[in-house]
């Protein structure tokens, strides 16, 4: 369990992180969203015990980051936004070095290295030199490095930056798998559509303040309490409008171009089905009937103002 309480960081007059509080449980994959300079990296660095909070605290499974940072370090895996690997080192040697750094016994290391290589799909690259790996593979190796000591919390700062679509997809799958392994994963990113696929919780931060926090669906509901249904009819828009305005759960219906009507709907999916059935029964020739789903990008744009420090 990760409990963050009133985490606050100032650099001179600048408040980089402003009283951040949230908690995450094992299995949570938390997408930390915010514009550049919002305070994501500062927060992650504080949780990684690389930067001391000005005020507030965080506890990982009851261990305080302020009073026992060394113990916290044993329980976290940290992947910075930009990182370098040790050239002239083979993949397995790189992992062996970090396993040794985390005081894992010499006998256990080969097994652990094999398992993290398998998890990150780098088994075939075991004997390769790290500098010969592609960017995506290096990113996976860095993630493998985070896993050698079996951490409780993974802090991944912009892990998908600079990756091609295939590498991003592979990384996404890997992060989702880590969540299934009951680890707490914090992922900061500005590639929003991707976060929605594997994060079960998100937090939106702007100018150091957490504007929204919770399960993805709940936040989407907060942002858009009513559903928007897009209906396209072959003809008879006026008749369709008349029918819609009289229907139950319809808040408003606005005609648009190309015989399209956008309906603000307060009902559930069952009520949507009823509405469609009624329209068809009343002779309206419906060509298209679907709910317009908002995505994380819409949520982000609606919640944030675009202000930066």
């Amino acid at each position: 369990m990760l409990e963050v309480q009133n985490l606050h960081k100032t650099f001179g007059d600048l408040t980089a992180v402003n009283n951040l509080s949230f908690s995450l449980k094992p299995g949570d994959v938390f997408g930390f969203i915010g514009p550049n300079g919002a305070g994501k990296t500062t927060t992650i660095r504080m949780l990684a015990t690389l930067l001391e909070p000005t005020a507030g605290n965080a506890r990982l499974n009851g261990v305080d980051i302020l009073s026992d940072p060394m113990e916290v370090r044993r329980r976290i895996g940290y992947m910075p936004d930009f990182f370098g690997l040790y050239d002239d080192t083979k993949v397995w040697e790189y992992l062996d070095f970090f396993a040794a750094a985390y005081q894992i016994g010499k006998k256990q290391r080969p097994e652990i290295i094999d398992s993290v290589l398998e998890l990150t799909d780098l088994t075939t690259k075991r004997e390769s030199f790290v500098q010969t790996l592609s960017r995506g593979m290096q990113q996976r190796l860095c993630l493998a490095r985070c896993l050698v000591h079996d951490p409780t919390l993974l802090l991944l700062d912009e892990p998908a930056s600079g990756l091609d679509p295939r590498a991003r997809a592979e990384l996404k799958e890997l992060i989702a798998e880590l969540g299934r392994m009951n680890k707490i994963v914090i992922v900061s990113s500005h590639i929003l559509p991707e976060l929605a696929d594997f994060c079960n919780t998100i937090g939106i931060i702007e100018r150091g303040a957490l504007l929204a926090f919770g399960p993805v669906k709940d936040i989407m509901k907060q942002v858009q309490p009513t559903r928007v249904i897009r209906i396209r009819v072959l003809d008879g828009v006026a008749r369709a409008l008349e029918l819609l305005q009289a229907a139950e759960h319809v808040k408003s219906a606005e005609p648009g171009e190309d015989n399209v009507i956008r309906v603000q709907f307060t009902g559930e999916v069952e009520h949507q089905a009823d509405l469609l059935e009624k329209m068809v029964r009343d002779g309206v020739r419906v060509v298209d009937f679907r709910e317009e789903e908002i995505d994380l990008e819409d949520v982000f744009l609606r919640i944030t103002t675009g202000a930066v420090h």
Binding site: A48, T49, R73, R74, P80, F83, Y86, F98, A101
Partner: peptide, 9 residues
Amino acid sequence: SWDILLVTP
């Protein structure tokens, strides 16, 4: 790679 090294024990 310095930060990565510093977060290890």
